[in-house]
Nucleic acid binder design. Structure first.
Lengths: 119, 119
DNA sequence: TTTTATGTACGCTTTTATGCGTACATACAC
DNA sequence: GTGTATGTACGCATAAAAGCGTACATAAAA
């Protein structure tokens, strides 16, 4: 089938976004890993094995990320394609996601280094 | 006694601050109320009755705020004086606290309005 | 010294969050 | 049609977070 329809899942408008709901969503390390993955592969899918959690756990994390406004999802066949809502997030909370992504990267570097650079 | 000594409680350095620990601290509405109070009265004390929680609950919230790096506390007699670590926070996470304070204010306005402006 | 005010430490309960497994639903491949 | 892949909904178990009350500690006031 050439023109495959995608169904976007319901999500808050830019105005409805709640900063502290977003912060609560980002407080979980699994969800931060999902965010990092989506940011690196916009429009891509992700599987539960990527994050060491079950399928049902991944479903819940997706919902929390989606309802906070951090991501947009579309059903595409049997898969979900995911995007970070960068433009709307930048518009609503300027600089926030840039800081978040920087700190996610910083933390993974620290992990790779075994924190040896900190002494 | 004219020169009363104050004892600062231990707190993370600017470099040790963890963005996501800060976000977890800000995810709680009681702690946001404490932050708003401290921001409005720097160096002041706060009592548990201000926030509708017990003394022991307030102690725990203080510790979480202090260990995340959001506030500085000094023991002054029988009281604790509190400050937001604005300069260090601005330096480490530019723009973050400005956004946070704006959203705290926005939420309390919405509460006062009974959200009547949203329809 | 006694009393009052402020705060902490501990134990306990309740609530919330996270995790998994199973069963089910849907879309695609065959 | 059957089978496979992907994802959701539910129930249940575990862990984390929040709450309170009591007892205790310290500083100031009386």
């Amino acid at each position: 089938m050439a023109s495959r329809l995608t169904r976007p899942l319901s999500l808050p408008s830019k105005e409805e976004m709640d900063l502290f709901q977003i912060m609560a969503a980002l407080a979980d390390p699994v969800r931060r890993a999902i965010i990092a993955h989506i940011a690196a592969t916009p429009g891509g899918a992700c599987s539960s094995s990527d994050f060491g959690v079950s399928k049902s756990a991944l479903t819940r994390h997706w919902r929390i990320l989606r309802e906070s406004g951090l991501i947009r999802q579309e059903v595409d066949g049997t898969r979900h394609r995911n995007w970070l809502r960068s433009d709307e997030l930048d518009d609503r909370f300027p600089g926030l996601m840039s800081t978040v992504q920087q700190e996610i990267a910083r933390k993974s570097n620290v992990d790779l280094d075994g924190e040896t650079n900190e002494h």
